[in-house]
Amino acid sequence: MALSVLELKNVTVRFNQVGAKGTSTDQEILKDLSLTIVKGERVAIVGPSGLGKSTLLKTLAGLIRPTVGTLWVEGQNFYNLSSSQQQRLLVKMGMLFQRNALFDSMKNGENVRFPLKETTHKSAIEIEAIVDQFLAAVGLLHAKDLYPDEISGGMQKRLGIARAMALEPEILFYDDPTAGLDPITSRKIIELMINLQKQKQSTLVVVTNDMNRAFQVADRIFFVFKKDILSTGSPEETRKCADPRVQQFIHGRPEGPLTEVSA
């Protein structure tokens, strides 16, 4: 029995939305779902846009507190812990946001160095070595003294990955890491993520709506449909999955059970 690092039990997430006329309505994004992620596996969360993939990811990462249900991190009930204990667990997690969230005012090297300086007690020389090591790993050592807006979108993604990885987190969350990139660049970025993950034996959770990327990255695939979640297993099992929604999504068919939701 592998060790479960992340677990959601009967989680429901509701957002209070303020409507145009000042009316507030509760919108249920996720409903009564449970899932377990074990150490060292690579998980992809896929599904149509706007149905809660990113919400699920943020709930797993402890950024959104579920309205009902519990989040378990390394076997501990996350929201029952004191804030210092929570902090200790959060340090083990790294997140790459959809829009990179790079610091524009810092050079690329500084972008990687900054979180290291803030969260570890390593000496300046050690930190510099780590910065160089991770910039080299994503092929950006030559761009160390440039600013983020001086490099291409694909390079910014890679820089974001280097920054997230440099803290050597045990669990890494990626929110749509290849959004808007061309397929060639996307494939290289996923390759890079897998290489780094294998070296560090970390756990990887990736949200994407591109099946090619999901198949490339994942040991296990989850589909998020309207409020509920479907575990379809390995890429091979997913391809053979009998659920018509999954088949429609994989093959990108315009007609099918999902047509209405994504219209």
Binding site: G47, F249, G252
Partner: peptide, 14 residues
């Protein structure tokens, strides 16, 4: 179709 999910992609393409 950049950034759209496969189903929306297919319908826009069509």
């Amino acid at each position: 179709t950049t950034g759209l999910d496969p189903i929306t992609t297919a319908s826009v393409n069509l």
